[in-house]
Amino acid sequence: MFKIMIVEDDQTIAKLIAENIEKWNLKAYVIQHFEQVMTEFVHEKPDLVLMDINLPVFDGFYWNKKIRETSQTPIIFISSRNTNMDMVMAMNMGADDFVNKPFSMEVLLAKINALLRRTYNYQDSNANFLEHNGLKLNLQNGDAQINGQEIALSKNEYKLLQFMMRQHGKIISRDRLLRELWEDERFVDDNTLTVNVNRLRRKIEKAGLKNYIVTKVGQGYLLP
């Protein structure tokens, strides 16, 4: 699993990036001590660095320079400083890409995966399929497959299963699932989530996988 080091002092943005990175089966490591970026880089050995420019103690250009003294690990700058000079400086100092804030999370993730592929000859298995415990989810047509048997999914069942598979091994709260499936969960009956989960569970069990989705009472759901 590739590790992405996030050097961003806005903890809200850093947490959001980390959550989205981990949905794609990548490991996120968020820097907490901004005077020790190089120390943590050496210790964690990330495969890619996301670097803000405006940071406490030393700016991102400084840490980019320090990293480039010893490593060619790919670096993507993420910054609200979007002048041509900032972009030119970043690239001239050895950065691999530059993303302006505010940015689209989908664009950032696409750039991360593209850079990982270029650098490590990484074939992104998430491009077409997700697999977990005998279930294979086709990300192109939205169908699931168990032991060669196709399972047709509704739009919500597909979105639900995809998100849960990316978070397998973690308990996912009902509130988080509501937020992921519907843009404004305030207008969605909580029972709607229960109905979708139960329908999905029955389809998976009918195809031969028992206890694929586990209910954690008072906590949410889990794909063990």
Score class of each variant (00 low, 15 high):
1 M>P: 00
2 F>E: 03
7 V>N: 02
7 V>K: 01
9 D>C: 12
9 D>V: 12
10 D>A: 15
11 Q>V: 12
14 A>H: 00
15 K>L: 09
17 I>H: 07
18 A>L: 07
18 A>W: 08
18 A>T: 01
19 E>F: 07
19 E>V: 04
21 I>T: 03
25 N>T: 05
27 K>V: 13
27 K>E: 12
31 I>D: 00
31 I>E: 01
33 H>T: 11
40 E>S: 13
40 E>D: 09
42 V>G: 00
46 P>N: 08
47 D>H: 14
51 M>C: 07
51 M>D: 09
56 P>N: 07
56 P>I: 12
57 V>T: 12
57 V>S: 10
57 V>L: 08
58 F>S: 01
59 D>M: 11
62 Y>T: 05
63 W>G: 00
67 I>L: 05
70 T>Y: 06
70 T>Q: 10
70 T>D: 01
72 Q>T: 14
80 S>K: 13
85 M>P: 00
86 D>Q: 11
88 V>W: 03
89 M>C: 10
90 A>E: 06
97 D>Y: 11
97 D>I: 10
98 F>M: 06
98 F>V: 08
99 V>H: 02
100 N>E: 13
102 P>K: 08
103 F>P: 04
103 F>I: 08
103 F>C: 10
105 M>S: 07
108 L>A: 12
110 A>G: 11
111 K>L: 12
116 L>D: 00
117 R>Y: 10
119 T>C: 11
119 T>K: 13
120 Y>P: 06
122 Y>R: 14
123 Q>R: 11
123 Q>L: 06
124 D>S: 08
131 E>P: 01
134 G>K: 08
135 L>I: 15
135 L>S: 03
137 L>R: 03
143 D>G: 04
143 D>N: 15
145 Q>H: 12
147 N>A: 14
148 G>W: 06
151 I>W: 03
152 A>I: 14
153 L>P: 00
153 L>K: 09
156 N>E: 05
156 N>F: 05
156 N>M: 04
160 L>V: 04
160 L>T: 04
161 L>D: 00
162 Q>H: 10
163 F>Q: 02
163 F>T: 03
166 R>G: 12
166 R>V: 01
167 Q>R: 15
169 G>R: 06
169 G>W: 04
169 G>Y: 07
173 S>V: 06
176 R>G: 00
176 R>E: 06
177 L>F: 13
178 L>D: 05
178 L>M: 15
181 L>T: 01
185 E>C: 15
198 N>K: 14
198 N>W: 05
199 R>S: 05
199 R>G: 02
199 R>Y: 09
203 K>R: 03
204 I>C: 14
205 E>F: 09
205 E>W: 02
206 K>Y: 08
209 L>P: 01
214 V>I: 12
214 V>L: 04
219 Q>T: 08
221 Y>C: 05
222 L>D: 03
223 L>F: 05
